[in-house]
Amino acid sequence: MEVPPVAKQPTAEKRQRRERGSINPDDIINGAFELAEDIGIDNLSMPLLGKHLGVGVTSIYWYFRKKDDLLNAMTDRALRQYVFATPYVEAADWRETLRNHARVMRKAFLGNPILCDLILIRSALSPRAAKLGVAAVEKAIESLAEAGLSPEDAFDTYSAVSLHVRGSVVLQRLYDKNQSTDCGPGYFEEAMVIDPETAPLLAKVSAEGHRIGASDEKNFEYGLDCILDHAARLIEESAAKPAQRRKTATPRRKAAADR
Rank of each mutant, 00 (worst) to 15 (best):
residue 52 H to A: 06
residue 14 K to C: 08
residue 179 Q to H: 04
residue 162 S to R: 14
residue 43 N to E: 14
residue 33 F to R: 09
residue 87 P to G: 06
residue 128 R to V: 12
residue 55 V to I: 11
residue 209 G to T: 06
residue 207 A to S: 13
residue 197 E to Y: 04
residue 102 A to F: 02
residue 41 I to C: 05
residue 25 P to C: 04
residue 253 R to E: 11
residue 152 E to M: 15
residue 33 F to L: 11
residue 36 A to S: 15
residue 203 A to V: 02
residue 9 Q to I: 10
residue 40 G to C: 11
residue 191 A to G: 13
residue 218 K to A: 15
residue 99 R to W: 09
residue 130 A to P: 06
residue 124 A to K: 09
residue 131 K to Q: 10
residue 216 D to F: 15
residue 244 Q to H: 07
residue 70 L to W: 05
residue 71 L to W: 08
residue 159 S to Q: 09
residue 254 K to N: 09
residue 235 I to W: 02
residue 92 A to E: 12
residue 175 Y to M: 02
residue 19 E to S: 11
residue 120 L to I: 04
residue 101 H to T: 01
residue 42 D to C: 08
residue 31 G to S: 08
residue 12 A to I: 00
residue 133 G to T: 03
residue 150 S to R: 06
residue 191 A to D: 12
residue 174 L to P: 05
residue 96 E to M: 11
residue 67 K to F: 10
residue 106 R to P: 02
residue 59 S to V: 04
residue 12 A to K: 00
residue 70 L to F: 07
residue 4 P to T: 09
residue 138 E to T: 14
residue 16 Q to R: 11
residue 103 R to F: 10
residue 32 A to S: 15
residue 63 Y to C: 05
residue 149 L to M: 07
residue 221 E to V: 10
residue 91 A to T: 08
residue 99 R to H: 10
residue 51 K to T: 00
residue 166 R to N: 10
residue 188 F to V: 14
residue 2 E to C: 06
residue 258 D to V: 05
residue 68 D to S: 10
residue 141 I to V: 15
residue 225 D to K: 07
